[in-house]
């Protein structure tokens, strides 16, 4: 599944005059120009990228790609050549490249870390359907009409900030029942089995409560 979607520029994009004015101050070496340029363009860039990548599991990937693109530019504005296009387009393209690379790495990492049954969950193209697996567990009969899958996943991912907790959610979504699999992601595999079981149960119960508060209930039959 490609998370990318063709999309035009966001409405909140600042005017060329505004961008050019701060750009000129940056070239002139004003120490507050980097800050002003980042403040002017960060949120519009994020909005633009979010429209192009609506289904990323972690919204911070977009925030960081936009941030890094702006950081690179303010530290070395000479990489941008005005005769080749606008600064806005340059920054969008730069951030998109960054985001595509990050997304590929993230997918590789997810594929490595998730303990899904490869036969049950992998797609014919070899890519694991992480979001689909979670949604199938959250709503086995399908989401209500109008429900936004990517938004639900993004909400869960944003609220479950602990990487270990997220891995536990992925395991639960994958129907994993073995204590050892959970113990491994929780980093407690060295404990006696009884302690592992107790800690795993605590973690799963805590996450079930958190998911319930978010309006999601795992179907773990």
């Amino acid at each position: 599944m490609s998370p990318e979607r063709k999309q035009d520029v966001p409405a909140s994009r600042p005017s060329m005059e505004q961008i050019n004015r701060v750009h000129q101050r940056l070239i002139a070496g004003e120490p507050d120009a980097p800050s002003d340029l980042i403040a002017l363009l960060l949120d519009p860039l994020i909005a633009s990228l979010a429209r192009k990548f609506p289904t990323l599991p972690d919204p911070n990937l977009i925030v960081d790609a936009a941030t890094d693109s702006l950081f690179r530019f303010v530290q070395d504005p000479s990489h941008f050549h005005p005769q080749r296009g606008t600064l806005w387009n340059y920054l969008v393209m730069d951030a998109l490249g960054d985001l595509r690379n990050t997304w590929k790495k993230e997918r590789r990492r997810l594929n490595r870390e998730q303990a899904f049954d490869p036969v049950a969950h992998d797609r014919p193209d070899g890519n694991s359907d992480v979001e689909g697996a979670i949604i199938r567990k959250l709503a086995p009969d399908g989401l209500p009409e109008g429900a936004d899958v990517s938004e639900l996943i993004a909400q869960l991912r944003a609220r479950i900030t602990n990487p270990q907790d997220w891995q536990v959610v992925l395991l639960m979504a994958g129907g994993e029942r073995r204590t050892e699999a959970y113990a491994h992601v929780l980093g407690i595999a060295h404990l006696p089995l009884a302690d592992q079981r107790r800690r795993v149960k605590q973690a799963k119960d805590r996450l079930r409560v958190m998911l319930k508060r978010l309006g999601a209930t795992f179907n773990e039959q």
Partner: peptide, 8 residues
């Protein structure tokens, strides 16, 4: 996002 950028 701006606050996160400042931390970064």
């Amino acid at each position: 996002a701006l606050a996160r950028a400042a931390r970064r």
